[in-house]
Computed example of a mutant assay.
Amino acid sequence: MSQVVVVTGASGGIGRASAVAFGARGARVALLARGEVGLRAAAKEVERAGGTALPIAVDTADHAAVEAAAARVESELGPIDVWVNVAFTSVFAPFTEIAPEEFRRVTEVSYLGYVHGTRAALDRMLPRDRGTIVQVGSALGFRGIPLQSAYCGAKHALRGVHESLLCELRHRGSKVAVTMVQMPAVNTPQFSWVLSRLPHHAQPVPPIYQPEVAAGAVVYAADHPRRREYWVGASTVGTIVANKIAPGLLDRYLGRTGYASQQTGQPRDPEQPANLWEPADGAAGRDFGAHGVFDERSIRRSPQVWASRHHGLLGAMGAAALTALVATQVRAR
């Protein structure tokens, strides 16, 4: 029997690329997201890739809705083998320009949405004593950067829950596995649809990777979930290492460069959609696809994915080299 996979945030970006990647393996894929236009288009891509698609419109901030979606998946597709949490939202703005209700909304989707998905999956996997949950994390869960305080806070919180859950599963001797994939900057549509108060169009901090690189790491993690986490991209490893060895220097470096590096030279379109409260690909919207607007600048391979899979001597040597490189770059600033 083919795997039954649930992917939240499946209408765009990493979630969409991951759903298609699972579909290419013949999986039965439940796609969860708010935007129905994007969901329908993503479902067609999954089916063209060779999978079976079940699109379900749901806001992951609503635990009851996530639970109902999980019940529908098992009723229509069968027992869930893999649950991938990807859905998120954010606000690009200085901390003092983010309203309390906006901060709460980001937290409800980007943190509690993962909690709700994980709980729905565990309620079904634990009695069967099998299944895998993949949390899509971020380098920003290790190191906060300016203009993304709400998102960084959610990713930091997710790491804490992940570590606690790992310990609890090991305590009970469960065969249910939980792993995280820590992502770098990825060329997703978020930079064209996240609520932004920046003067210029938002961009991921280079180097930028294509969503398919991230999706490949997600699929690999689902197949090999006994690793507690995987890393995608030199920037992710470098950020983590630099924050460990020189957090004060990194504070100053990001204070100087973090505003400009997250914006292009193009003014932000005042009519740009914002998906904080309503999906940008809702009934009146359009399908944004998996890719953002940075295709020409994006990387299609990641040696760090390979190194993360083979984390022996070569991985240690790579980490040491990255440590030296990042330390030199930070001090040079």
Rank of each mutant, 00 (worst) to 15 (best):
L147T: 07
V241R: 05
P267M: 08
S261E: 06
G285H: 12
A41Q: 02
V237S: 12
G78H: 00
H156P: 10
P273R: 03
D251I: 13
R25S: 14
L254R: 00
A10G: 14
R28P: 12
E296K: 09
V181N: 00
P206Q: 06
G318V: 06
A27P: 11
R104L: 14
A284D: 05
W83H: 04
I145D: 06
D129F: 10
Q3L: 15
L166V: 12
H311G: 15
G318D: 08
A61Q: 09
V232Q: 00
L195V: 05
P303R: 05
L122R: 15
N85P: 13
V86Y: 07
V241A: 04
V232Y: 00
V293N: 02
A139D: 04
P199M: 05
M125S: 06
F103L: 14
E168Q: 14
T188N: 01
G113W: 05
S149A: 15
R309T: 12
A185F: 01
R297F: 13
G153E: 06
L77I: 13
A57V: 07
G13F: 01
R333C: 14
V134E: 07
Y259I: 11
A215W: 01
A99S: 14
L112N: 10
A222I: 00
Q266H: 11
I145E: 06
L122D: 06
V161H: 05
H224R: 07
G13S: 01
A185I: 03
R16Q: 04
G9H: 01
V213P: 04
R228H: 10
I14G: 14
T179Y: 04
I299Q: 01
A246G: 15
G117D: 01
R286I: 11
P211Q: 00
A65N: 08
V178S: 02
P79I: 07
G35W: 06
G282C: 10
H171V: 01
G289H: 02
V186E: 00
G318M: 13
